[in-house]
């Protein structure tokens, strides 16, 4: 038990240390900020396009902010992984893709479920009759907030997961002197 506790404490410490080492560099803070801004712009654009130019949402805006901020952080960690670690490059790419896709997916459901023109276009492209899917789409729309909360949770879990990856940062500080 004591060993188990020690391992989990070490794991948490390692993740915290990794986060500190990544975000102590201004570049990765900048990437996170720019990423969050870009994701919010994509979200805003998709919602407005779905509603004929009007940005109207029925999900609390603070959930949207949390989604784009966690996506921005995940994106920054992914960029770090791609740059710094060959071993973690693939997971860095997948993390980066996920960080961009989640806010975009959120925009498809955050507005009124009654106007699902973007989603309908995608379904039609896939050969699915939107009339048949209308009931499902509206059902998804009625759980907007919960779905976005799940997306935020997914971002956080991925951040925690990727921070545990060996980016070559976990060598102990060399004793000097």
């Amino acid at each position: 038990m004591a060993t188990k506790n020690k391992i989990s404490t070490n794991s948490a410490n390692r993740r915290i240390n990794t986060a500190i080492r990544i975000f102590s560099h201004p570049l990765y803070i900048l990437i996170a900020v720019l990423g969050s801004s870009a994701f919010f712009y994509i979200f805003h654009y998709l919602i407005s396009r779905s509603n004929n130019g009007v940005f109207i949402i029925f999900t609390p805006i603070y959930l949207i902010y949390a989604l784009v901020i966690t996506s921005g952080i995940l994106f920054s960690i992914s960029v770090f992984a791609i740059i710094h670690s060959v071993a973690s490059r693939r997971s860095g790419v997948s993390g980066g893709i996920a960080s961009a896709l989640l806010p975009a997916a959120g925009s498809l459901i955050a507005s009124c479920g009654c106007s699902f023109s973007l989603l309908a276009s995608i379904l039609l492209f896939l050969g699915i009759n939107t009339f048949e899917a209308a009931g499902i789409i509206s059902f998804i729309g009625s759980y907007q907030a919960w779905i976005i909360l799940a997306m935020i949770s997914a971002n956080i879990l991925m951040i925690i997961y990727y921070l545990g990856k060996p980016f070559g940062l976990h060598q102990p500080l060399r004793k000097r002197g």
Partner: peptide
């Protein structure tokens, strides 16, 4: 009192 909901075509 809920949100937007549309019945399925069959309904």
């Amino acid at each position: 009192r809920g949100g937007f909901l549309l019945n399925s075509p069959s309904k």
